[in-house]
Structure formats: structure tokens, C-alpha cells
């Protein structure tokens, strides 16, 4: 369970709330986040709602005839992007578990997400 008492403050907070392949927002959000990482920003990403599927391991896009961007997502830590948050209520709704993910994310309550957004200097939403 969440034991966070201090809410981190980020200069740039990304919110991913769309599924990875359901629209172009999945890929284009990732590309923007990687660009921010390359520019060494004090940043974090919140995966919420359908955006949680971005973190799901074993994405297979062969039948969907789409380019798989799981590799791109797994590059996030290499770009210095370690602050990854997962919406706890969204995990429950989708019967997802942190062990389904291929990157370590910290589960957070909706209340904490609200606080992260309030504290962030800038928010980019995809």
C-alpha cells in the first residue's frame, strides 16, 4: 500500500491515459517523453486508465500490423526516466498487477495523482 507522505515535485509531468496502439497518442506521447529525458528534465510519467497497457509485458503487434513500441517504452530508464507512477484504481479495474509490467512503476491513489498534478510545474497529457 501507499505510504507516501511527501509528494515529489516535477518540472514536467506526463500523463499517459490512452492505450498503446488504439491511437497515435500512445507512440507520440512516448516519443515526447523520450525527448524530455534526452533533455535531462526533472520529470515523471503517470500511467492511468487505458494508458496502463503501455507497461504490459509481452506486447505482440504482429497481427495488428503495427510497429511494436514496447522497446521504446523499455528505453525510458536509459533516458533517465525512472519516476513512473501507475494509477492503482486503474490497475484494479483492469485486473492488472505490477507483476504484469516490464518496468517498475509505483502504484498511486487517485488522490496522490491529483496532488502530483497540482505540484507539477508543467503537465503534458497524451
Amino acid at each position: 500500500m501507499e505510504t507516501q507522505t511527501h509528494i515529489a515535485q516535477y518540472d514536467l509531468l506526463f500523463i499517459f491515459s490512452h492505450s498503446p496502439y488504439g491511437s497515435s497518442l500512445g507512440r507520440e506521447g512516448l516519443e515526447a517523453a523520450l525527448a524530455a529525458g534526452a533533455f535531462d528534465q526533472n520529470m515523471a510519467i503517470i500511467f492511468m486508465g487505458e494508458g496502463l497497457w503501455q507497461l504490459k509485458s509481452q506486447q505482440d503487434t504482429v497481427d495488428a500490423q503495427r510497429k511494436n513500441h514496447q522497446k521504446m517504452t523499455s528505453a525510458l530508464p536509459m533516458f533517465g526516466i525512472d519516476a513512473l507512477y501507475a494509477q492503482a484504481s486503474g490497475l484494479d479495474e483492469r485486473q492488472l498487477d505490477l507483476s504484469d509490467f516490464y518496468l517498475a512503476a509505483k502504484p498511486v491513489s487517485d488522490e496522490t495523482i491529483g496532488e502530483l498534478i497540482r505540484q507539477a510545474k508543467q503537465v503534458l497529457s497524451f
Binding site: D11, L12, E31, A32, A35, F39, Q41, Q122, V123, S125
Partner: peptide, 20 residues
């Protein structure tokens, strides 16, 4: 231009507003 211009813009603005 590249996405660096987006990141640069967020760093230099008081507010960033997204229209999606």
C-alpha cells in the same frame, strides 16, 4: 522541427496548455 522544441517550450513558459 523536433520534439526538443516542445520540451524547451515547457521549460520556458509559465503555462503549457494542451488541446487534444
Amino acid at each position: 522541427s523536433g520534439l526538443g522544441q516542445l520540451i524547451d517550450a515547457t521549460a520556458h513558459s509559465d503555462r503549457t496548455i494542451t488541446f487534444a
